[in-house]
Design a protein around this nucleic acid. Structure first.
Lengths: 201, 201
DNA sequence: CGACTTTCTGGCTGCACATCCAAAACTTTA
DNA sequence: TAAAGTTTTGGATGTGCAGCCAGAAAGTCG
């Protein structure tokens, strides 16, 4: 069913259920996020979720789409506005960490889903592609900097993996230590990778 | 029951079951690693596992202990043998990636367990401490380099998080892309963090 | 107001799983 | 070899879950 053809009630319910799913997953972890629990959070019967989404998997997918949209909307414009690759890299790192500050719970929910969800058997997992895209996008910035002569001669893919790895490690820290100094962390990460990528004297 | 007081059969069974658990978890993922499946892999009845380990949780703990021991035995001597912090950091990164090469399956199993296991509710999770220790150990190397004047003036904890994040991102890549060039990755990661940490001219 | 559609409820069903257990098979001891 | 101990089997039990459905409630339109 397309968004345009949805009732007002339909839209409201979907939004409410997605919000409650995010809340429950972020607070109690993916494994404890049962249909019943999400329904209880929304103060509705669990059948309603099946009615509007068709099952648990589609609901989870909707949550992922929602959070991914939030993140893209926040970060993409910032990155594209930069005049140089060095500044784009800075904006990339800052944007990621800013998102963690502004949307803690949605981010935690996303991380829970991406790390815990799996589509039967050892296969790539349903969100491997998402991770791959994140790496490739970052590689584009690095490529830009290499072309422009701003960066030193490193292996793009490895550098992309290192940077994303460092960023992806933050939610876990944030989760277990809420008093984490994100500003400090942001400054230090930007400094570290600016030094690590720049053309050496 | 202490290791010394265990029968020959007891020891053999425990080792066999742990090996099979590693195999199953690494090949099929934590979620698909049921008692029945591990038992089938070992060609025994599932009751035997309960008999020797007392349940699933203790088995998983035993697996973690086993792999952690493997890793420590490989890496610690290498790191302690280095004459400078810079070389210790190199040995740390190389040791970690060498471990991934030599013990792919045990490592995958460990990662699966650490990311998927959880002890009810949102609490710290049973292996949060393990991760914390890994960070703290790395901080010791960084502290050494700072004291010795080899490294620049960065925030130790953030740098430790970045380095571990980069290393921890590798298993995921390795898992979905077995033809990954680990040698290249190792060289590049060492180069990147050597540059990122060294005293700037 | 009625017919009709959309939305919701609460409980039922079936499945996958860890755990438990009684008895069988095996091993050690005397 | 018999008795006592250990190990293994295979199935029974109970739990927690997603999905399903019959009917109730709420909303819409002539």
């Amino acid at each position: 069913m397309q968004p345009e053809s949805r009732t007002f009630i339909e839209e409201a319910r979907r939004a409410q259920i997605i919000a409650c799913a995010i809340e429950v997953i972020a607070e109690h972890g993916y494994a404890n996020a049962t249909m019943a629990r999400i329904a209880k959070q929304a103060k509705i019967s669990s059948g309603v979720i099946s009615y509007h989404f068709g099952g648990k998997d589609p609901l989870i997918q909707a949550v992922v789409a929602e959070v991914a949209k939030l993140a893209t909307d926040l970060m993409l414009p910032r990155i594209l506005a930069q005049p140089s690759a060095t500044e784009a890299l800075r904006a990339y790192i800052e944007g990621n960490l800013e998102f963690m500050r502004l949307h803690r719970k949605p981010l935690l929910a996303l991380v829970e889903i991406v790390t815990h969800a799996q589509g039967g058997e050892s296969g790539p997992g349903p969100y491997a592609e998402q991770a791959e895209v994140a790496i490739t996008d970052l590689e584009k910035i690095l490529h830009w900097g290499r072309q422009a002569g701003e960066f030193r001669d490193f292996h793009q893919r490895t550098m992309a993996i290192a940077i994303r790895g460092a960023i992806d490690a933050v939610p876990g820290r944030l989760f277990h230590d809420p008093d984490f100094d994100l500003d400090l962390l942001t400054r230090e990460l930007v400094a570290t990778f600016t030094i690590a990528t720049r053309r050496q004297p």
